[in-house]
Structure formats: C-alpha cells, structure tokens
C-alpha cells in the first residue's frame, strides 16, 4: 500500500488474476466446520461433493490421491457460513464455535 502512482498499473487495472487469495477471510469465522470421514460419501466412494459445489468460498477441498478420497477444509478462507453442514446429506459436517 506504499506504492507511488507510477508504481501501480494504469487505471486500477489488476493484472494478477485471482490474487484475492492473498486476502484471508478465515478471520471472519465465528463457527468452524468439523468433518467426520466415517459417513462422508466423498471419502467413502468419491461421490456427492455437495459441500464443495455449494461452498461460496471454495473452502472445501476434495482430494483424490493414490486411489483414496481425502477431505479437508481450507480454514484460511472459510467464513463459517455453515452451508456445507446444512446441505450435507449424511450429516457428516457440524459447526462448532471458534
């Protein structure tokens, strides 16, 4: 934020696409999602993924590695809205106060 007028691109153009990832919104969170692998359909067989589809902050990470399905939250950005918990068809996510 200390740049002079001639040290920033012209006209407010932002030339680095998606650089908003440098801004962490995880600090907004009042509640955090807690995930249970046991009942999660993604972990079980790589299906469902509703939490990932609906998450407005791209904070659900569905990872496929060595034939295994791994589930993670990206708490750097998760705002704790609880959409994932609300939409989970197997109640594998619950919200807990920070």
């Amino acid at each position: 934020m200390s740049e002079k007028y001639n040290e920033i691109p012209m006209a407010g153009n932002i030339i680095e696409p998606g650089n908003a990832t440098k801004y962490k919104t995880g600090g907004w969170r009042a509640q955090r999602p807690i995930h249970t692998d046991e009942t999660c359909l993604w972990v079980k067989n790589g299906t469902c993924g509703l939490c990932w589809i609906y998450c407005p902050d791209n904070s659900v990470k569905l990872i496929e590695k060595d034939g295994k399905y791994i589930y993670e939250f990206d708490l750097e950005y998760c705002k704790g809205c609880g959409i994932c918990a609300n939409q989970c068809p197997t109640d594998s996510i619950r919200m807990e106060n920070e």
């Binding site: 934020m1 740049e3 002079k4 007028y5 001639n6 920033i8 012209m10 006209a11 407010g12 153009n13 932002i14 030339i15 696409p17």
Partner: peptide, 24 residues
C-alpha cells in the same frame, strides 16, 4: 489469455494515485 480485472473498487488507499496518473 491474460485475464486482467478492469474497473475495480479502489478506496482511500489507492484511488488518489489513479487520479495522479490521470493528471500526469
């Protein structure tokens, strides 16, 4: 191929610098 953002929100921290660019 080079997806930039044009016309963002610039507030107290940057707006003035863009006006300086215009003046220059």
């Amino acid at each position: 191929d080079n997806p930039i953002t044009m016309g963002p929100l610039a507030l107290t921290d940057y707006y003035f610098e863009f006006k300086e660019q215009q003046e220059r």
